[in-house]
Design a binder for these strands. Sequence first.
RNA 1: CGGGGUGUAGCGCAGUUUGGUAGCGCGUAUGGUUCGGGACCAUAAGGUCGCAAGUUCAAAUCUUGUCACUCCGACCA
Length: 568
Amino acid sequence: MLMSKLVGERTKENPADASIASHALLVRAGFIKLVNNGIWSLATPAKKICQKIERIIREEMDAIDGQEVSFPVVMPKEIWTESGRYSSIGSEMVRFKDRNDHDMVLGMTHEEAAVHFVRDAVNSYQQLPVMVYQFQTKFRDEARCRGGLIRVREFTMKDAYSFHTDNADLEKYYDKVYDAYVNIFRKVGMKRVVAVKSDTGMMGGSVAHEYMLLTDIGEDTLVICPSCDYKANMEVAVSKRPSRRDEVSENISEVFTGDASDIPTVAKMIGVPEYKTMKAVCYCVRGSEELILCFIRGDLEINEAKLKRVLQKDIAPANISASNELHAGNIGAYNLKVTNTTVVFDESLKNQNNLVTGSNKAEYHLKGIDMARDFKDIEYVDIAKVTAKEACPICGAPLNIENGIEVGNIFQLGTKYSKAMNMTVLGSDGKPFNPIMGCYGIGIGRALASIAEESHDANGLIWPMSIAPWQVYLCGIRMDDAIVKEKANNLYKHMTREGIEVLFDDRDTSAGVKFSDCDLIGIPIRVVVSPRSLANGEIEIQLRDKTLKENCKCEDAITKIKEIIATS
RNA sequence: CGGGGUGUAGCGCAGUUUGGUAGCGCGUAUGGUUCGGGACCAUAAGGUCGCAAGUUCAAAUCUUGUCACUCCGACCA
């Protein structure tokens, strides 16, 4: 590829709307161009990286007996009605009518298509397990795109679907995919990737993991144990909390607290630590008048993902200031009288005593609450957010909290789709059953952006060799010099013939411009042909990550470059 | 969906307060001088100032509406 012909505008200045490095650099280097909110065109370098990432994924998927297929982007309403998701998914799924007034959808995921595809072709347990996968465009009408390619509406995803006779077989296969994913992220050059336990959300199913690239700009919050291998998304993370029960329980008494309504103020006023309080947090059920009143230890926060799972309902924060039943700021579980309200107690309160809580009347709080004594027969559920330094549920070490970008996920789906879509195969006992499914995804563009996020410096991108758009940036300095021009041209032809991927900067421009572009684009090996080094019969080789800079004889160049490629 | 910000040349911006017919830097084209970390000189091309309506002798500038993008939050297989 000749640099003089490469389409894609490079700029010196950061785009005004970029707030993260990968977004800014990918735009500056001319890799991507915005077409519409969350919809991007990819230039050749970005496309080449995607192809290399896909090649690595394909190798790993094939190695665990995956069969590459291709499902459609546009699907009829019917198969989504079968699974129940035509109605359960909101405006994130694009729906439209074709010329015959038929309801259609744009694929945002392909469980339905996979079941539709496999259910007629697979009739016997003897054909299982089977896994199909594809690289396909997804469209999700995201409420809010961000971060360049990190969160977009249209993107390419590798999605895979496996079918099994029983849970044991799924689990065995799930482990294989788990390992394949570890290989994939290692091969594409992502370093700080961890697999965390995750929520299964609208996908249904039980066990799920997300592969997270640890970075400050990550949208997900992760709980990670530094001393054992406990790692979980905040949505599902748990911790061990020491009991704060005192030896002696006081009696309940009222305390005047005036207009103090938040926990720090009340605790300070009464003179107790915040963990000796019980606070109320109120939610409403989306699309209903029903209220959810959560009681939790005052120093903790509600984990809304956990709460949703406990309730099996969609919730939203509620504004209760207008309510007649509840005194905002003075809500307490003791002597509470409410209607059309679900009351939930967090496990952090279990068996605690001498707690301060609202009195359900203005200007007063209660102290001396003993959960064991004052509340009989209540059920405690885990709806609390884990906080940093709490004890790991496995080993007890203080937990860390970090941010991560989700670069891949794997789900044990169970029979949610095979049952809903009536996919059956005959078992060894001659009876039909619904196969157990798993599904496994990796976003290609997000992977590219994540690598850019992890691997760059002030001058530009730094691509790992395995996915670099080109392996070598061949730089002719003084292309107006006949000898340089000839040498560089010969080297370009020679390298290309040897199968080395070269971007040849044949432009007649200054060295500074070429070096800057080379750094910005982030090609791993820079080869410089110039009058200066050529005078000694040498060319210059330098690595983008600055781990090597040396001259070598022209005739040894190809061997040397191949060696670098082979060992990186 | 809620809150903020911004729309002026391919990119980054000034000009808007106080209305007077559009500007800077980068990039691009041509010629010349340069040449190992974003060279210099000269000349040139490129904009119905997001869109629409209104006020006015006159609107990038004031008014109203609308659209788009973006940031923070909600949502997120």
